[in-house]
Design a binder for these strands. Sequence first.
DNA 1: AGATGGATTTTC
DNA 2: AAAATCCATCTC
Length: 215
Amino acid sequence: MPRLGPAFFDRPTLAVARDLLGALLVRRIGRGLVAGRIVEVEAYVGEDDLACHASRGKPGKKGRAAGLYVGPGHYYVYMIYGMYWCLNVVTEREGFPAAVLVRALEPVGGVHLMRRRRRAARRERDLANGPGRLCQALSIDGRFHGKSVESRSLWLERGDPIPEKEVIRCPRIGVDYAGNSKDLPWRFYVRTSECVSVRDPEAERLPDQSARSMA
DNA sequence: AGATGGATTTTC
DNA sequence: AAAATCCATCTC
């Protein structure tokens, strides 16, 4: 499958997020390959999004959030709760802070390598069904922060498209602190996947999820 | 339900 | 300088 280049990410963040569903995230570790199909993502868009790191601290391109301004197709990797890494891909034009957080993968290849790094996971579906877990499973850490998606050891490939009917759109996880941004429906996941980290029963009951405005 | 634990941000 | 907070996960 062809790799996704920077141009793929140089688009509105919600469209990128939606289209990343079904794509493959591939990691090369030495001679081994570890790969997963993306089944859950979240969009973080601009300084006005109170859940986006760019809304914190001093406005502008300083500190941690600087990594969100670097232009489309770069990884933004940060540590959370002092223990776990989270992988984002920066979107939109240079100078505008936005990214897509990759929240869950369905294991596709190198499952034995994932198990080695995810001893706590008993079932295969638990190997990468969370933003911290997938970084453990694929051995992704701060070394990838700021790197390009054209990296030789971590990249994305186009996968089979996910039909609109299978896409669930709902509010993001863990952003209750984000005031008026907390209910924005900027999380997308694949309804039929067993590897979604947190399901949203209410959203799954509603018809025609992602046909709503992307604005 | 509670513990974890480092970087970042906010408050004093 | 100190306290609070965090895009989470594991164990109990």
